[in-house]
């Protein structure tokens, strides 16, 4: 065996293969970038150069044409921008939180069917207080309190409650978990509660539910279901609450309330 190593043979192979590759690329480019976009004719950019740029994938900013405005205040909270709490935030938050103790308990554990805040995710508290303040969520009790807080106050309070030791939760066996909590209801678009609320995974802004009063959870799910409460981002929670039956709401509420062993 030997290698055919004449300059002519080398050149022939190189030029032939480069030529084939070039022809392939050029012809598919012309078809894909020029011919197809122009015959499709659905392109909003009229001239040829624009349509080539479009076909090549040059990004353009989505245009918003006269959207329908909402009839209620919407949440202005961008969940991803929550910075880390400063070191002295917890101390300042403790002072502000004195006014919260009457409902939410001096240690953040409520005796009045208000939510327990001790050990709650800071982002969740921040979002709700901001929404009370902006009017995206309204409550006869909470709205006046929130109206007097600055953005920094809200961060501090959130940091303080997140810092407190959480409600003790007994680890109930999987057997005791109602189906709606453990599995959701896939074809009604209900994911397992824990996939956002922390036992499987926590999504920014979703509260920890373990040990929350049953009455509070029931009231909120009902409020989401009928659209009284609308501060969930892009209907995230309304989509789920609307699909839950009265029984399922009761089961979920009872289950989460039961995770508080003291039965407060």
């Amino acid at each position: 065996m030997s290698i055919e190593k004449t300059p002519a043979s080398n050149r022939a192979w190189a030029s032939a293969s480069i030529a084939i590759a070039a022809v392939l690329f050029m012809s598919s480019s012309i078809l894909g970038l020029v011919v197809l976009p122009s015959v499709q004719g659905t392109d909003p950019f009229t001239n040829l150069w624009d349509s080539i740029c479009s076909a090549a994938g040059l990004p353009r900013r989505a245009s918003s044409t006269d959207p329908v405005e909402p009839d209620h205040k919407i949440s202005r909270v961008v969940l991803s921008t929550m910075p880390k709490a400063e070191a002295d935030s917890v101390g300042r938050g403790a002072t502000i939180a004195l006014q919260c103790a009457i409902c939410h308990g001096p240690t953040g554990v409520s005796r009045a069917d208000s939510p327990n805040l001790a050990g709650q995710y800071a982002v969740a508290i921040y979002k709700q207080l901001e929404d009370f303040r902006s009017g995206a969520r309204s409550s006869a009790v909470m709205s006046p309190f929130a109206a007097n807080l600055s953005d920094q106050d809200i961060r501090d309070v959130a940091a303080y409650y997140a810092y407190l030791p959480s409600v003790p939760t007994n680890h109930a066996s999987t057997a005791g978990v109602p189906a709606i909590v453990a599995y959701g209801a896939p074809l009604r678009g209900i994911a397992p509660c824990g996939s956002c609320h922390g036992s499987v995974e926590n999504k920014a802004g979703s509260p920890w539910l373990g040990g929350q009063p049953s009455a509070y959870i029931t009231a909120q799910l009902n409020a989401f279901a009928v659209g009284i409460r609308t501060n969930d981002t892009s209907q995230q929670m309304r989509n789920i609450a609307r699909q839950m039956s009265k029984d399922e709401i009761a089961q979920a509420a009872e289950y989460y309330a039961s995770l508080n062993p003291d039965g407060l």
Binding site: S28, S29, L31, G32, L33, L36, P37, S54, A55, G57
Partner: peptide
């Protein structure tokens, strides 16, 4: 949504090759 239709076609053609 982040790739232009033209490049989708070009890659489709090369995929045939």
């Amino acid at each position: 949504p982040q790739v232009g239709a033209g490049f989708k076609f070009i890659h489709s053609a090369f995929t045939a090759v």
